[in-house]
């Protein structure tokens, strides 16, 4: 996506656009979830913390970022394994944290 358009300086690629689209989709899904079941679903789970759905999303995304970084630092590419690990981690957080 190069050229002289207004956002050319942002150097968009389809991969990074897909990444942000995923984040935005998560936020929209959380909003819809909240509208359908208001209150945020607070509870205390395996982390020993009082968390709402938003907290659990944040913990999942932050944890996923660290899973990817750790994999890149200690193992390298390809990144399918940390992707799977991240989804498994997010499932555990949403289900039991």
């Amino acid at each position: 996506m190069q050229g002289t358009s207004l956002i050319a300086w942002m150097a968009w690629t389809w991969q990074t656009a897909a990444f942000f689209a995923f984040i935005i989709a998560c936020l929209i899904a959380m909003t819809v979830w909240e509208l359908r079941r208001p209150g945020g679903g607070p509870r205390r789970g395996i982390l020993g913390l009082d968390t709402t759905r938003g907290d659990r999303l944040f913990i999942s995304l932050l944890g996923a970022a660290y899973i990817f970084l750790a994999w890149l630092g200690f193992v390298g590419t390809p990144l399918w394994a940390p992707l799977g690990l991240s989804f498994a981690y997010a499932f555990v957080i949403f289900r039991w944290a």
């Binding site: 300086w9 942002m10 150097a11 968009w12 690629t13 991969q15 990074t16 990444f19 942000f20």
Partner: peptide
């Protein structure tokens, strides 16, 4: 977002 784009 721009930093993310530059980082790859």
């Amino acid at each position: 977002m721009t930093v993310v784009n530059y980082s790859v």
